[in-house]
């Protein structure tokens, strides 16, 4: 059986990588792209790029087994409601929603409609992260004592810096990847968060500084720098790292450290770093396609992602109050 997948919106630039990964799978087909509102022209252009048809939303929903939602954060809920109505499975871009209320609404909608729904957390498929998981399960760390992560990137611009569309800046955009990895590796939730934020790098209306100092539900301490602090001219898009400090050893993961350096006299930029490691998006898309076929939830469910959004919401509250804030999870 070929699993038929549609793409709802290409507002998020990750859409291109997911489309590439889908086209590499022999047992899946990207059927078409759809969009609403002002971005229809962008979606039509993207569909041309991918060599598929642009379709009206209801037409596409009637013709697919699952959809990947790559809209703005604020539009996730509306797309999920339409997809759930149509009875198709869903892979939603991260963060699941700008607020816990909307994230819960997404999870409830999918549960009530009986569709399988997941969130795009490609780092769960990053081979360095998986190696760390194996090392942990092998007991290499002894007792886990401290976690320190980074997910620093370039400022993405566009709708990411429009609070109406994104829900916020670097805290919204660059917290949940490493938070999810830590929750996945440890089996714990984030219990408390203290945030230092600010707008220091760019003339934008959202924060670009994002430092989170957290504890997990078992008391383990966890700090994360998810700032948009990489210059526009940096030689790569950003980083995703995690250091796991244990009583017996330390494991340091660099998800995108596998880079070669290219210099081209006639190119701009003249020097760039090129990632050659395994592509985590391939595993992510593979898992979703398998989930659709096997009628099971994707590895990272929307229900689970509500607790990631709760961390983000608590971080904003902490920055507002200048004190540590308890994270409400269910």
């Amino acid at each position: 059986m070929t699993v038929r997948i549609g793409l709802c919106s290409t507002a998020h630039h990750h859409a291109h990588s997911y489309a590439d990964s889908l086209s590499d799978l022999p047992d899946a087909e990207l059927v078409g792209v759809t969009e609403v509102g002002d971005r229809v022209a962008d979606a039509r252009a993207a569909a041309d790029d991918y060599g598929v048809d642009y379709r009206d939303p209801d037409d596409l929903f009637a013709d697919v087994d699952g959809v990947v939602v790559c809209s703005t954060n604020a539009d996730h809920l509306a797309w999920v409601e339409r997809a759930a109505d149509a009875g198709v499975d869903i892979l939603c871009e991260k963060p699941l929603a700008p607020t816990v209320a909307e994230a819960r609404a997404i999870a409830d909608t999918c549960r009530e409609a009986g569709v399988n729904a997941g969130v795009a957390m490609p780092l769960r498929f990053s081979q360095p992260v998986r190696n760390a998981k194996t090392a942990m399960e092998d007991g290499l760390l002894g007792d886990l004592r401290f976690l320190s992560g980074t997910n620093r990137g370039q400022m993405p611009g566009g709708w990411f810096v429009d609070e109406e569309a994104s829900g916020g800046g670097a805290v919204m955009d660059h917290s949940v990847h490493i938070v999810d990895v830590v929750r996945w590796l440890t089996g714990e939730d984030v219990d408390e968060v203290y945030a230092e934020t600010g707008t220091k790098f760019h003339d934008i209306g959202v924060e670009d500084v994002n430092f989170l100092s957290m504890t997990l539900t078992d008391g383990t301490e966890f700090v994360l720098d998810g700032s948009w602090s990489k210059p526009d001219e940096w030689d790569f898009w950003g980083d995703a790292t995690l250091r796991l400090v244990g009583s017996e050893g330390v494991v340091s993961v660099d998800c995108f450290g596998q880079k070669l350096k290219q210099t081209s006299d006639d190119a701009d930029p003249a020097i760039q770093s090129v990632y050659w490691g395994s592509n985590p998006d391939e595993g992510l898309v593979r898992d979703f396609v398998d989930a659709v076929r096997e009628d099971r939830p994707p590895m990272k469910t929307v229900a689970d992602a509500v607790n990631d959004v709760a961390v983000v919401e608590a971080a904003y509250e902490s920055a507002e109050r200048t004190e540590a804030v308890a994270v409400e999870h269910r």
């Binding site: 401290f146 203290y194 301490e221 700090v223 400090v245 009583s247």
Partner: peptide, 19 residues
């Protein structure tokens, strides 16, 4: 704002993060 993990293996072990 600081977090410090601490354990003893015959020596004082500490790992700290300070914002």
């Amino acid at each position: 704002f600081a977090r410090t993990a601490e354990w003893d293996d015959g020596h004082l072990n500490q790992h700290s993060s300070v914002l």
